[in-house]
Design a protein around this nucleic acid. Sequence first.
DNA 1: ACCCCGACCTGAGGGC
DNA 2: TGCCCTCAGGTCGGGG
Length: 281
Amino acid sequence: MPELPEVETTLRGLAPYLHAQAITAVTVRRTDLRQPIPANLAKSITHQTVSSLERRSKYMLLHLANRQTLLIHLGMSGRFTTYTTPTPPAKHTHVILTTPKAELHFTDPRRFGLCLLIPTAKLATHPLLKHLGPEPLSPAFSGKTLHTAIHTKKTAVKPTLMDAKVVVGVGNIYASESLFRSHIHPKTPCSNLTLKQCEVLAGHIRQTLTDAITAGGSTLRDYRHGDGQLGYFQHQFNVYGRKGESCPTCGTPIEHAVMAQRSTYWCPTCQPLKANKKAPR
DNA sequence: ACCCCGACCTGAGGGC
DNA sequence: TGCCCTCAGGTCGGGG
Protein backbone atom coordinates (compact mmCIF):
# COMPACT_ATOMS: atom_id res chain seq x y z
CA MET A 1 0.00 0.00 0.00
CA PRO A 2 2.34 2.72 1.05
CA GLU A 3 5.14 4.27 -0.88
CA LEU A 4 7.12 7.21 0.42
CA PRO A 5 4.28 9.78 0.16
CA GLU A 6 1.88 7.55 2.06
CA VAL A 7 4.44 6.88 4.80
CA GLU A 8 5.21 10.59 5.04
CA THR A 9 1.51 11.43 5.18
CA THR A 10 0.92 8.80 7.85
CA LEU A 11 3.80 10.07 9.97
CA ARG A 12 2.61 13.68 9.72
CA GLY A 13 -0.82 12.54 10.78
CA LEU A 14 0.56 10.74 13.82
CA ALA A 15 2.83 13.54 14.96
CA PRO A 16 0.19 15.65 16.78
CA TYR A 17 -0.74 12.61 18.87
CA LEU A 18 2.80 11.39 19.54
CA HIS A 19 5.29 14.23 19.58
CA ALA A 20 6.36 14.97 23.17
CA GLN A 21 3.64 12.60 24.37
CA ALA A 22 4.09 9.75 26.81
CA ILE A 23 3.06 6.29 25.73
CA THR A 24 0.75 5.33 28.56
CA ALA A 25 -0.17 1.85 27.41
CA VAL A 26 0.85 -0.66 24.76
CA THR A 27 -1.16 -3.60 23.51
CA VAL A 28 0.42 -6.24 21.29
CA ARG A 29 -2.21 -8.58 19.89
CA ARG A 30 -0.16 -10.55 17.40
CA THR A 31 3.61 -10.75 17.03
CA ASP A 32 4.24 -12.66 13.79
CA LEU A 33 4.84 -9.88 11.31
CA ARG A 34 7.68 -9.98 8.75
CA GLN A 35 9.93 -10.11 11.76
CA PRO A 36 8.54 -10.93 15.21
CA ILE A 37 7.52 -8.01 17.36
CA PRO A 38 9.94 -8.19 20.31
CA ALA A 39 8.44 -9.86 23.35
CA ASN A 40 9.54 -7.04 25.63
CA LEU A 41 8.08 -4.27 23.47
CA ALA A 42 5.27 -3.21 25.78
CA LYS A 43 7.47 -3.30 28.85
CA SER A 44 10.25 -1.38 27.09
CA ILE A 45 8.23 1.53 25.77
CA THR A 46 5.37 1.98 28.21
CA HIS A 47 5.75 5.31 30.06
CA GLN A 48 8.38 6.46 27.57
CA THR A 49 8.03 9.81 25.85
CA VAL A 50 8.26 10.19 22.07
CA SER A 51 10.90 12.86 21.65
CA SER A 52 10.79 13.07 17.86
CA LEU A 53 9.47 11.39 14.73
CA GLU A 54 11.42 10.75 11.56
CA ARG A 55 10.99 9.00 8.24
CA ARG A 56 13.87 7.14 6.58
CA SER A 57 12.96 5.46 3.32
CA LYS A 58 9.58 3.86 4.05
CA TYR A 59 10.44 3.33 7.71
CA MET A 60 8.79 5.39 10.41
CA LEU A 61 11.12 6.07 13.31
CA LEU A 62 9.69 7.09 16.67
CA HIS A 63 12.60 8.22 18.81
CA LEU A 64 11.97 7.68 22.50
CA ALA A 65 13.41 9.48 25.50
CA ASN A 66 15.14 6.31 26.66
CA ARG A 67 17.38 6.33 23.57
CA GLN A 68 15.47 3.57 21.91
CA THR A 69 13.69 3.97 18.59
CA LEU A 70 10.48 2.28 17.59
CA LEU A 71 10.85 1.35 13.92
CA ILE A 72 7.63 0.73 12.04
CA HIS A 73 7.19 -0.34 8.43
CA LEU A 74 3.75 -0.55 6.87
CA GLY A 75 4.62 -3.27 4.37
CA MET A 76 2.05 -3.63 1.61
CA SER A 77 -1.13 -3.33 3.62
CA GLY A 78 -0.26 -1.55 6.86
CA ARG A 79 -1.95 1.56 8.19
CA PHE A 80 -2.44 3.58 11.34
CA THR A 81 -5.83 4.62 12.57
CA THR A 82 -6.20 7.24 15.28
CA TYR A 83 -9.08 7.22 17.76
CA THR A 84 -9.68 9.85 20.39
CA THR A 85 -11.92 7.55 22.39
CA PRO A 86 -11.26 3.91 23.38
CA THR A 87 -12.12 1.70 20.43
CA PRO A 88 -12.15 -2.09 19.99
CA PRO A 89 -9.38 -3.35 17.70
CA ALA A 90 -10.12 -4.45 14.16
CA LYS A 91 -9.42 -7.97 12.99
CA HIS A 92 -5.86 -7.30 11.86
CA THR A 93 -4.89 -4.67 14.41
CA HIS A 94 -1.62 -5.94 15.84
CA VAL A 95 -0.38 -3.10 18.03
CA ILE A 96 -2.16 -0.32 19.91
CA LEU A 97 -0.21 2.62 21.30
CA THR A 98 -2.07 4.77 23.79
CA THR A 99 -1.11 8.35 24.61
CA PRO A 100 -2.99 10.97 26.62
CA LYS A 101 -4.40 12.25 23.33
CA ALA A 102 -5.38 9.13 21.42
CA GLU A 103 -5.27 5.43 20.70
CA LEU A 104 -3.14 4.62 17.67
CA HIS A 105 -4.03 1.31 16.02
CA PHE A 106 -1.44 -0.35 13.76
CA THR A 107 -3.33 -2.64 11.40
CA ASP A 108 -1.74 -4.81 8.72
CA PRO A 109 -3.74 -7.67 7.15
CA ARG A 110 -0.91 -9.15 5.10
CA ARG A 111 1.61 -8.83 7.93
CA PHE A 112 4.48 -7.73 5.68
CA GLY A 113 5.05 -4.85 8.07
CA LEU A 114 7.48 -4.42 10.95
CA CYS A 115 7.43 -3.13 14.49
CA LEU A 116 10.87 -3.29 16.07
CA LEU A 117 12.73 -1.60 18.89
CA ILE A 118 16.31 -0.53 18.17
CA PRO A 119 18.80 1.47 20.24
CA THR A 120 18.83 4.89 18.63
CA ALA A 121 22.62 4.94 18.48
CA LYS A 122 22.61 1.73 16.43
CA LEU A 123 20.12 2.83 13.78
CA ALA A 124 22.75 3.86 11.25
CA THR A 125 24.36 0.44 11.32
CA HIS A 126 21.19 -1.60 11.58
CA PRO A 127 20.89 -4.21 8.78
CA LEU A 128 17.55 -2.80 7.62
CA LEU A 129 18.91 0.72 7.27
CA LYS A 130 22.63 0.65 6.63
CA HIS A 131 22.49 -0.15 2.90
CA LEU A 132 19.82 2.38 2.00
CA GLY A 133 20.53 4.83 -0.78
CA PRO A 134 19.81 8.57 -0.77
CA GLU A 135 16.49 10.14 0.18
CA PRO A 136 14.89 11.38 -3.05
CA LEU A 137 13.78 14.67 -1.49
CA SER A 138 17.20 15.47 -0.08
CA PRO A 139 20.16 17.20 -1.76
CA ALA A 140 21.98 13.85 -1.62
CA PHE A 141 19.88 12.78 -4.60
CA SER A 142 20.36 14.45 -7.96
CA GLY A 143 20.62 13.65 -11.64
CA LYS A 144 24.33 13.35 -11.20
CA THR A 145 24.14 10.89 -8.29
CA LEU A 146 21.46 8.93 -10.12
CA HIS A 147 23.57 8.73 -13.26
CA THR A 148 26.60 7.65 -11.27
CA ALA A 149 24.60 4.95 -9.50
CA ILE A 150 23.04 3.37 -12.58
CA HIS A 151 25.00 4.22 -15.74
CA THR A 152 26.90 0.93 -15.79
CA LYS A 153 23.77 -1.20 -15.32
CA LYS A 154 22.30 -2.99 -18.29
CA THR A 155 18.99 -3.65 -16.56
CA ALA A 156 15.80 -1.78 -17.32
CA VAL A 157 15.40 1.57 -15.62
CA LYS A 158 11.98 0.96 -14.08
CA PRO A 159 12.85 -1.89 -11.71
CA THR A 160 16.16 -0.16 -10.99
CA LEU A 161 14.30 2.89 -9.65
CA MET A 162 12.73 0.56 -7.10
CA ASP A 163 16.14 -0.60 -5.87
CA ALA A 164 16.63 1.02 -2.47
CA LYS A 165 20.39 1.11 -2.98
CA VAL A 166 19.85 3.52 -5.91
CA VAL A 167 17.22 5.73 -4.29
CA VAL A 168 14.79 4.96 -1.48
CA GLY A 169 11.05 5.43 -1.37
CA VAL A 170 10.22 4.99 -5.05
CA GLY A 171 7.74 2.14 -5.23
CA ASN A 172 5.78 0.59 -8.04
CA ILE A 173 3.32 3.42 -8.64
CA TYR A 174 5.68 6.36 -8.55
CA ALA A 175 8.31 4.59 -10.66
CA SER A 176 5.85 4.41 -13.57
CA GLU A 177 4.55 7.93 -12.95
CA SER A 178 8.02 9.50 -12.78
CA LEU A 179 9.12 7.80 -16.00
CA PHE A 180 5.99 9.04 -17.76
CA ARG A 181 6.69 12.62 -16.74
CA SER A 182 10.27 12.18 -17.92
CA HIS A 183 9.31 10.71 -21.33
CA ILE A 184 11.48 7.68 -20.62
CA HIS A 185 10.33 4.17 -21.55
CA PRO A 186 10.40 1.86 -18.50
CA LYS A 187 12.38 -0.78 -20.40
CA THR A 188 15.20 1.58 -21.31
CA PRO A 189 18.50 0.03 -20.23
CA CYS A 190 20.06 2.17 -17.51
CA SER A 191 23.30 2.32 -19.45
CA ASN A 192 21.47 4.08 -22.30
CA LEU A 193 20.41 7.01 -20.13
CA THR A 194 22.37 10.19 -20.56
CA LEU A 195 23.30 12.46 -17.70
CA LYS A 196 20.76 14.92 -19.05
CA GLN A 197 18.01 12.28 -18.94
CA CYS A 198 19.01 11.35 -15.39
CA GLU A 199 18.72 14.99 -14.39
CA VAL A 200 15.24 15.19 -15.88
CA LEU A 201 14.27 11.91 -14.22
CA ALA A 202 15.63 12.86 -10.81
CA GLY A 203 13.69 16.11 -11.00
CA HIS A 204 10.46 14.34 -11.86
CA ILE A 205 10.93 11.72 -9.14
CA ARG A 206 11.27 14.53 -6.63
CA GLN A 207 8.32 16.45 -8.04
CA THR A 208 6.02 13.44 -8.31
CA LEU A 209 6.66 12.44 -4.71
CA THR A 210 6.25 16.03 -3.54
CA ASP A 211 2.97 16.38 -5.45
CA ALA A 212 1.71 13.15 -3.90
CA ILE A 213 2.57 14.30 -0.38
CA THR A 214 0.78 17.58 -1.04
CA ALA A 215 -2.29 15.65 -2.16
CA GLY A 216 -2.21 13.60 1.04
CA GLY A 217 -0.90 10.47 -0.65
CA SER A 218 -2.81 8.05 -2.80
CA THR A 219 -5.84 6.13 -1.68
CA LEU A 220 -5.97 2.65 -3.14
CA ARG A 221 -8.12 -0.05 -1.67
CA ASP A 222 -8.57 0.88 1.96
CA TYR A 223 -5.59 3.15 2.53
CA ARG A 224 -6.52 6.27 4.37
CA HIS A 225 -5.03 8.63 6.90
CA GLY A 226 -5.10 8.05 10.61
CA ASP A 227 -8.09 10.34 10.89
CA GLY A 228 -9.95 8.44 8.18
CA GLN A 229 -9.41 11.07 5.50
CA LEU A 230 -8.58 9.90 2.01
CA GLY A 231 -5.55 10.87 -0.03
CA TYR A 232 -6.24 12.28 -3.45
CA PHE A 233 -3.13 11.73 -5.55
CA GLN A 234 -4.58 8.62 -7.21
CA HIS A 235 -6.77 11.00 -9.23
CA GLN A 236 -3.58 12.46 -10.69
CA PHE A 237 -2.14 9.17 -11.93
CA ASN A 238 -1.22 9.58 -15.59
CA VAL A 239 -0.53 5.94 -16.36
CA TYR A 240 -0.60 3.71 -13.27
CA GLY A 241 -3.55 1.32 -13.36
CA ARG A 242 -4.78 2.81 -16.63
CA LYS A 243 -4.02 0.05 -19.13
CA GLY A 244 -5.89 0.69 -22.39
CA GLU A 245 -7.07 4.14 -21.34
CA SER A 246 -6.02 7.24 -23.24
CA CYS A 247 -2.75 8.94 -22.45
CA PRO A 248 -3.66 12.32 -20.89
CA THR A 249 -1.07 13.99 -23.11
CA CYS A 250 -1.56 12.43 -26.54
CA GLY A 251 -4.50 10.04 -26.33
CA THR A 252 -2.57 6.90 -27.21
CA PRO A 253 -3.78 3.85 -25.25
CA ILE A 254 -1.63 3.20 -22.17
CA GLU A 255 0.37 0.00 -22.34
CA HIS A 256 1.04 -2.48 -19.56
CA ALA A 257 3.62 -5.17 -18.94
CA VAL A 258 4.99 -7.08 -15.99
CA MET A 259 8.60 -6.20 -15.26
CA ALA A 260 10.45 -7.94 -12.45
CA GLN A 261 7.05 -9.28 -11.42
CA ARG A 262 5.51 -5.85 -10.97
CA SER A 263 2.84 -4.18 -13.10
CA THR A 264 4.29 -1.41 -15.24
CA TYR A 265 2.45 1.22 -17.28
CA TRP A 266 3.58 3.67 -19.97
CA CYS A 267 2.52 5.63 -23.02
CA PRO A 268 4.21 4.19 -26.12
CA THR A 269 4.05 7.55 -27.90
CA CYS A 270 5.25 9.86 -25.12
CA GLN A 271 7.81 7.33 -23.89
CA PRO A 272 9.37 5.82 -27.02
CA LEU A 273 11.90 3.04 -26.55
CA LYS A 274 15.01 4.13 -28.35
CA ALA A 275 16.89 1.17 -29.74
CA ASN A 276 20.33 2.68 -29.88
CA LYS A 277 22.48 4.22 -27.27
CA LYS A 278 23.06 7.87 -27.86
CA ALA A 279 26.59 8.69 -28.88
CA PRO A 280 28.59 9.67 -25.80
CA ARG A 281 29.88 13.21 -25.78
C1' DA B 1 29.14 -9.13 -7.79
C1' DC B 2 25.08 -8.89 -9.90
C1' DC B 3 20.20 -10.03 -11.07
C1' DC B 4 16.01 -12.48 -10.96
C1' DC B 5 12.71 -15.05 -8.68
C1' DG B 6 10.02 -17.05 -5.17
C1' DA B 7 8.34 -16.44 -0.75
C1' DC B 8 6.15 -14.16 2.90
C1' DC B 9 0.36 -13.25 3.91
C1' DT B 10 -4.71 -11.88 3.47
C1' DG B 11 -8.43 -9.91 0.96
C1' DA B 12 -10.84 -8.10 -3.03
C1' DG B 13 -12.70 -8.72 -7.36
C1' DG B 14 -13.82 -11.10 -11.63
C1' DG B 15 -15.37 -15.19 -14.15
C1' DC B 16 -18.00 -19.17 -14.23
C1' DT C 1 -24.48 -17.81 -3.67
C1' DG C 2 -20.05 -19.54 -3.91
C1' DC C 3 -15.79 -21.36 -5.53
C1' DC C 4 -11.51 -20.61 -7.73
C1' DC C 5 -8.29 -17.89 -9.84
C1' DT C 6 -5.51 -13.65 -10.18
C1' DC C 7 -3.78 -9.64 -8.44
C1' DA C 8 -2.24 -6.09 -4.93
C1' DG C 9 1.34 -0.16 -3.08
C1' DG C 10 7.33 -4.07 -0.18
C1' DT C 11 11.36 -6.47 0.90
C1' DC C 12 14.61 -10.20 1.61
C1' DG C 13 17.32 -14.33 0.92
C1' DG C 14 18.70 -17.82 -2.07
C1' DG C 15 20.11 -19.58 -6.42
C1' DG C 16 21.83 -18.91 -11.03
